[in-house]
Design a protein around this nucleic acid. Structure first.
Ligand SMILES: [Mn+2]
Ligand SMILES: [Mn+2]
Ligand SMILES: [Zn+2]
Ligand SMILES: [Zn+2]
Lengths: 148, 148
DNA sequence: GCTATTAATGATAACCATTATCATTATCAA
DNA sequence: TTGATAATGATAATGGTTATCATTAATAGC
């Protein structure tokens, strides 16, 4: 992944300051596989960073999302969950979500085919509807093993 | 679309009663093109159905969603928005969403190709991850004409 | 290294969509 | 017609997110 220096440079380039809360949140996201809510992050960092405020977690996540560093998924319970976007394209993935318990599974099967179609669709839609397309979301909803 | 009799039969089949609030909400959804929030519906029906409660709107929308009659989109502001699912398959569509103003555009271009891939992916994912897949969501996020 | 500027923070209150509660009403099978 | 109970409406409660504001800390310029 990225190191402190690279993050710092990236923040600098966007006129954003490199601060302790931002570093610790990025660090946590970097060593977590799943999708974390603001509260997850707040609670996880409590022991090592007792002073951290929940509002700062929200602000940081919104910033990271705006910079495209983090991917946001609105989980079925309406809660936002965040995951660091991998640097390499190969890691691009889509989601399989359990509508009962909210489990989010990252899948990478067929993503290549999906992305080909996405690219084609994106171009056509941008032209037809006069949109600047920034991102896409492909999700399958269902019941996981435990919930069915 | 459906008529009262058919809705009534469908409700009956699911052990649900056919009531005035449900009829009026279905009626409104039936003659609306866009994606309505609970409050939109509540306010729209206020003149012709002053007694209607907001909680009932939520309950009805959840029921309609559970029965697959209505499609739910979680808009960028975190608010749920609902649209009647068309009876004929031909009308199946996906969404183009403005991340600034929340505009939702239904698009039907490429949906056939998308659905072919969706079907293939669905089968493989169901097997691999042991999911029962109920639905899918394909969205493109960007900036609309006005917001860019 | 200082210092001034001002972005960022943390505590807290406010917001607001959604859900829970509960007494009352209306549906519908028998 | 009637009894069982699903559904409703008013309202309170919930809970995630955002706004406010005084304080702190990061950065650029000297
Ligand atoms: Mn993911
Ligand atoms: Mn739609
Ligand atoms: Zn589950
Ligand atoms: Zn817009």
């Amino acid at each position: 992944m990225y190191g402190r220096h690279q993050w710092r440079r990236r923040f600098r380039a966007n006129a954003c300051r490199w601060t302790a809360p931002r570093e610790s949140i990025l660090d946590l996201l970097g060593r977590t596989r799943g999708h974390l809510s603001a509260k997850d992050i707040y609670l996880s960092l409590q022991p090592t960073f007792p002073g951290l405020g929940l509002a700062t977690v929200y602000r940081t996540l919104e910033l990271l999302h705006r910079l495209g560093i983090v991917q946001k998924v609105t989980s079925s319970d309406g809660q936002g969950r965040y995951q660091l976007r991998s640097v390499d394209q190969q890691d691009h993935h889509h989601h399989l979500i359990c509508s009962r318990c909210g489990l989010i599974v990252d899948y990478r099967d067929f993503v290549r085919e999906e992305l080909e179609l996405v690219k084609k669709t994106e171009d056509a839609l941008a032209k037809k509807y006069n949109f600047v397309i920034q991102d896409h979301s492909i999700e399958f909803l269902g019941l996981c093993e435990k919930c069915r």
